[in-house]
């Protein structure tokens, strides 16, 4: 349908944008969530600041042991980036599961992260990657961990006037295996459950395990109990099963038409096992 009227600005610099945001405007990135919400008049911003014209907000850059991804980098850029596919394949794989071709062409990592849909794909990977999210306001810049960033349904650590400027993910050297496994909500394509796994082995023992979970509850989170249970083990099928069963432990699971809480919890465990097995199998 049709959005309400609004004022539109398309600044060329980030500072200019942040100045407008400080006055109460709302940022527009890829618009893949915001514009449909505006059309249904579920969201009615009075002033939109289009971040699309800001130079140097779309980039994927390696710097030492990390990769910086600019806020307006599209999902397609992420899924097809040779750098990310080689050095942070979990993020590229996760991006390839978002929406559809057209959505991935427009949707941005900054927009998706800031929207914090509890069924979005990226947050699972960002949790597993222990990503850093750089938040910038007119007068400040701060870096928060993914763990601290995702607060609740559609709620993040972003404060009024701040935007996500970039996402920082680690370079995963050899010895690391990753996988993102997702149960599709069949109508919308969002995640009923999405599990991102990142494991490293030393010898035949799992030295590090990170498990990011999306779709299961009000926000994406790290299944730390499961991670701890795997570390120091060999990652045998039986161990994987046992570890996967811990992923939903203590979680207040979402329940809707497409999956009850019980079923979601069950799927979380099944898909965690799948993601763990694939990730362990991918360790070079």
């Amino acid at each position: 349908m049709i959005p309400q009227q609004f004022e539109y600005s398309a600044p060329k610099t980030l500072d200019e944008a942040l100045g407008l945001l400080a006055e109460g405007a709302r940022p527009l990135a890829g618009g893949m969530s915001l514009i449909p919400m505006m059309k249904l008049r579920l969201s009615n911003p009075e002033h939109l600041v289009d971040l699309g014209r800001i130079k140097d907000l779309s980039y994927i850059r390696e710097q030492g042991t990390v990769i910086h991804i600019g806020a307006t980098t599209t999902h397609h850029d992420v899924e097809s980036s040779p750098l990310l596919r080689g050095k942070c394949p979990l993020l590229a794989e996760t991006a390839s599961h978002i929406g559809d071709v057209q959505v991935r062409n427009m949707g941005t990592i900054g927009g998706s992260v800031a929207h914090a849909d509890p069924a979005a794909d990226y947050p699972a990977a960002l949790q597993a990657l222990e990503a850093k999210i750089v938040l910038k306001g007119a007068k400040s810049e701060r870096t928060v961990s993914a763990a601290d960033f995702f607060v609740d349904t559609f709620t993040t650590a972003l404060e009024s006037g701040e935007i996500v400027r970039e996402v920082i993910v680690p370079v995963d050297g050899s010895g690391t295996g990753t996988s993102y496994q997702k149960v599709l909500q069949p109508a919308s394509g969002f995640a009923i459950v999405g599990i991102a796994v990142r494991v490293r082995k030393q010898g035949d023992k799992v030295a590090m395990a990170r498990i990011g979970v999306t779709g299961l509850s009000n926000r994406a989170f790290r299944a730390t109990a499961a991670e701890k249970a795997l570390e120091g083990r060999s990652g045998s099928p039986a161990e994987i099963q046992a570890v996967a069963a811990l992923v939903g432990q203590g979680v207040d699971a979402n329940s809707d038409l497409h999956a009850s809480a019980d079923y979601r919890l069950h799927l979380a465990s099944v898909y965690a096992a799948k993601a763990l097995a694939v990730a362990l199998g991918r360790i070079a």
Partner: peptide, 18 residues
């Protein structure tokens, strides 16, 4: 769906002004 700057996009989720 149309092609915008070489990429397929859903033109119902883009403002003309963009």
């Amino acid at each position: 769906t149309v092609e915008l700057s070489g990429k397929a996009v859903k033109s119902c989720a883009v403002f003309a002004i963009q």
